[in-house]
Amino acid sequence: MTDIDEAMLIALVDGELDEVNRRRVERAVAGDSALAERLAQHRRLRERLAGHYAPMAQEPVPDRLRSLLDASETVVPLERPVRRWGSWVTGGAIAASLVLGLGVGRLSREDVGPIGMQNGVMVAKGPLATALDSQLASAQDDAAIRIGLTFQRKGGGWCRSFDGAMAGVACHEGEGWQVQQVLPGAGRETAYRQASSADVRVMATVDALMAGAPVDAAGEKAAVAKGWR
């Protein structure tokens, strides 16, 4: 018999257990198939709920909601063409923030920009996908896109934060990277980086997603080698 209750199992799935308790639950689960099945149910439930609602956060925001916030803002037309990674910087960070928030999904089909739409969600493409797939945070001196933190998300799966002309967080889903958040980044032209507002917001997203702590260089390398499975 075991003294692991439902609340402990759920806390494990939610990434809320400290190291000691996590090990304790995992040991108990390893020796108890009924408990293991219950844990699997809770994992599936979390994935199913998160997966069900995730596309809603990727939908374009209706005009009537956006217009409430536009009252004191200068609005950049959404149709503004954005072709290449580099053009985000020249466009200006403020303009980019509006375009990024709303217009990222409107890239045309032949576009080889860093982000595209696939089945209604934002996915990394081109140079961003390449960086997320294979770039190590320890070896990226002059890279246009810098990888920040690499971590496991609550409920399982890899995520990485990135910075460059755009900053944000992407998580590995299926064969690619689903972009969770994207903001104007610090860019690479800046000689010394200022703490941008994107940093704060990207960190908030990392905090909200992350289970435990980010992996170190060895963990990052191992994850690349395994193809983020």
């Binding site: 809603m56 909601l65 923030s97």
Partner: peptide, 18 residues
């Protein structure tokens, strides 16, 4: 700006509302 920050989290607010 406050509005811009709200705009950035608006997609998640819509999801929570849903």
């Amino acid at each position: 700006s406050f509005e811009r920050d709200l705009l950035a989290i608006l997609p998640r607010l819509r999801r929570f509302a849903a």
